[in-house]
Nucleic acid binder design. Sequence first.
RNA 1: GGGCGGUUAGCUCAGUUGGUAGAGCAACGCAUUUACACUGCGAAGGUCGGGGGUUCGAGCCCUCCACCGCCCACCA
Length: 722
Amino acid sequence: MQEEKKNIPAIPEIFLSPYKPEETEDGIYAMWEKSGYFDPDKLPNHPTEPFTIIMPPPNANGRLHAGHGLDMTLKDIATRFARMRGKRALFLPGADHAGFETQVVYEKKLEKEGRSRFGMDPKQLYDEIYAFTLENKKYMEDDIRRLGTSCDWSREKFTLDPDIVRQVQDTFVKMHKDGLVYRGKRTINWCPKHQTSLSDVETESVEETTPFYTFKYGPFSIGTVRPETKFGDKYVVMHPHDKRYEQYKHGDVLEVEWINGPIMATIIKDEAVDPGFGTGVMTITPWHSQVDFEIATRHTLDMEQIIGWDGKLLPIAGEFASIKIGDARSKIVEKLKAKGLLEHVDENYKNIVKRCYKCAAMIEPQVKDQWFVKMEPLTKLVVNAVERDGHIDILPEYEKKILLHWMKNSIDWNISRQIVWGIRIPAWFKGNDVVASIDSPGEGWEQDPDTFDTWFSSGQWPLVTLGYPSGADFKTYYPTDLMETGADLVFKWVPRMIMFGLYLAKEIPFKTVYFHGMVNDANNKKMSKSKGNVVSPIDMVDKFGADALRMSLVVGNPPGSSTPLSEDKIKGYKHFSNKLWNIARFILSNTVNTSFEKPSLLPSEDEAILKNLDAIVAEVTKDVEEYRLYMAAEKAYHYVWHELADNVLEASKPILSGTDEDAKAARQYTLGVALVTSLKLLHPFMPFVTETIWQNLPGQMRDADMLMTARWPGSTRTTTPG
RNA sequence: GGGCGGUUAGCUCAGUUGGUAGAGCAACGCAUUUACACUGCGAAGGUCGGGGGUUCGAGCCCUCCACCGCCCACCA
C-alpha cells in the first residue's frame, strides 16, 4: 500500500485532502477583489459591450437573511456569466438607509435603553442613527462578500450619499415644477406609535371580528364599529333615492341627543351610501375616515379632528378627552347604553382593520398636509411602455399582469414622512407660501421638517447610482440589463423605478425584471423569528461553503415561486463540491506532464464524449441567456456528476491503465477538455470551488489567470484545454 | 369583494415551442476496483386533483368543478 502511494504522480498537494471551503473561500475572494476585475473598466481585453446589474441595496441596519442569499446568488450568476462571455460586466452594489425600517429598529433600541425619540433633538437623533447604520453596513457588506458576490465595490452607493440626496431632491423640484407633486390636505395612514404617515404598501389589512354597534341617532339608527370617533358626527348621510328617508331633505337640520348632550345634525344625501347595508343611514367622521372625507369634500362640510397624533382623544370628547382610543371604546359604549341610545350589538361582525406593517398598531386615518405624487400621468407612461412597446421582459410572466393591474389602479402617493431618518424634502414655507427649492429662498422661510418615503429615493436607484443625468457611467451602463429582486417588490419598488426611469431618462431602466420568490424553511413555511425557523445564510456558508448554499438556492427554484431551504439540500451540494474536487484530482493525476495537444485522429468514443459535452454547453448557455438559471444549474450539476464522473471517468479507467498509448493520449486530451469545460460551466453557480481548482491546474490547461475572467466555453471542437 | 398562483413518486419540487413522465431527499437490495463512503451500481415507487373538449398525439392548450395558498380592497 505504502509503496503504491509513492507512485501516485505528483499533483498539487491541496488535492490530497477533501475540499475544505472554510480554508480557501476568503483567500479566493480576496484574490478576486484585489485583481480589480470586479470593475468592468479594468477587465483584461477591455470588453466594450456593457452588461449592467444594479444591486437592490440591502438595508444597512442588519445582517443578510436567506432571501438576500438568493438575491445575491442570482445576480452574481448573471454577472459572472456575462463577464465570461466577454461583456463589460458591472454589478453595482449599494446599501439602503431604509428610512422608516431603520428608524423602527433604532426606536426599539432606544426603548430598550429607556429612551424615546420624541423630544429628542432631530439632529442628534439623525446622527445617532447614522452612526448605528454605518456600523451595521460593514457587517452587511462582509456578508455579501462571503456569498462570493462579484460586485464592483469601488462604485458602491449608499442612499444617503450627498450626490444621491442632491439628485433625489432635484427630482422633487422638477416634479413640483411639472405639476407632478402637490401639497394636499388628505386622508393619510397614521401610525400612532411611530407618529408618522405611511403609504398604502406600508400597511397591512387584516380581517378581524369587531362588535358592530347600532345606536339611536335622533329618528335614525346608525351602525358603527368605531364609537370612539363619533363625537363630532353632526352629519347624517343617506342615499338620495332611498324611499325610507324621502321625508328628509338634503340640508335639513335636526337636534339629536348624542354622547355628550344634544347636537345639531344636518341631513346629507350622497350616493356613496349603500341603502342595503345596515339601516342605510350613517353618520360621518371626515377627519378619521377616507370615505367620510370624500363625502365631506363633495359637500364642503366641516371636518374636525377627534383623535390626536398620539392616539388620544382631544378635548372635543369632553369627559373622555386624553383617553387612549383603545381604552375609550368600552367606556363610550357604556355611556351610550346608559343614555338608552344603544339599540343593538352584533358581536360577530367581521371587518378589515389596517395595521402598521412594523408594529401592528391600528392605523388611524388622519387628515394632514402632505406631499403627494400625482400618479396618473406617470402610471400612464408605465402602462404604455410595458403593455404596448414591450421593451421589457418580466419573469415570471404573470407578474406583468400584477404590475399592470396595480399601475392602473394606483392612487396618489403620499411621500411625506414625519421621521428624521431620510432625505429631507426640499420644500420651504413662509406663511401660506410654499416653494420647492434645494436652497432656502431667503429670510424667514422654514424648511419642511419631513423626509421622503424611502421608495421615493430608491425608485430612482438605477438612475442615481449611475450618475444621472451627466455621469460617464450613466452614458455607458444605462439602461441596465437585469433587475433581479423579490416578488414582494412588484408593488413597492419595481413600478416606481420604471416610472422614474421613463419620467427622467425617457427609458425603462432595465431590459429584464426577474422576480424571485420567498426562501422558506425546510417545510416550505415562511421563516420568522417568532417561529424560530430562521436560517442564517452566513451560518450555512460557515458550515457547507458558499457554493453549496448558492446551488441549493438556485436549483429547482424558478422565478416567482418560493423555495424550501434545508440543511440536507445544502449538504448535498457540499458533497457535490467535493465530487468536483475529486474529479479534478482524478483527471490531474492521470494527465501529469501531458501537453493536451489535440490528437490528429480522435477515437469515436472520445468524439462522442465531446459531442455530448457540446450539447450540454449549448443547453446551459441558452438556459442562462434566457434566465432559466434553476435549470442551467441542475443540468450542469447532472452532467458533471452523473455523466462525467459516473460514466466517462469510469469508462476511462481501463484506457488510462492500458497499453494503447494513442488511445490513452486521446483520452487524456478529452478529459482535460471535459474538466476545463465543466469548471467553466459551473463557475457562475459555484465560483469558489471552481476557481480554487483552476488556480491549481497546470498552466497549459488555462486560458486565463483567473477562471472568473476565462472564456465561456463554446464548441469543444475548437477548444483545447491549453 | 377583486386579482394571481398551485394541485405531478412517501416528502420537497422541476418538466422550455404539445411528441416514450424527471431530480433531490427518504426508504429497499448489492458493492470496498485508478479519484471520491462527502462513493458507486441496481431495483422499487406516478390512472400528472376531477369531469368534458381540441389534436394523429395533452402533465402542457380550451372549458367547467373541487381543494390549497398568496396578494390587493374606503361598505360605515
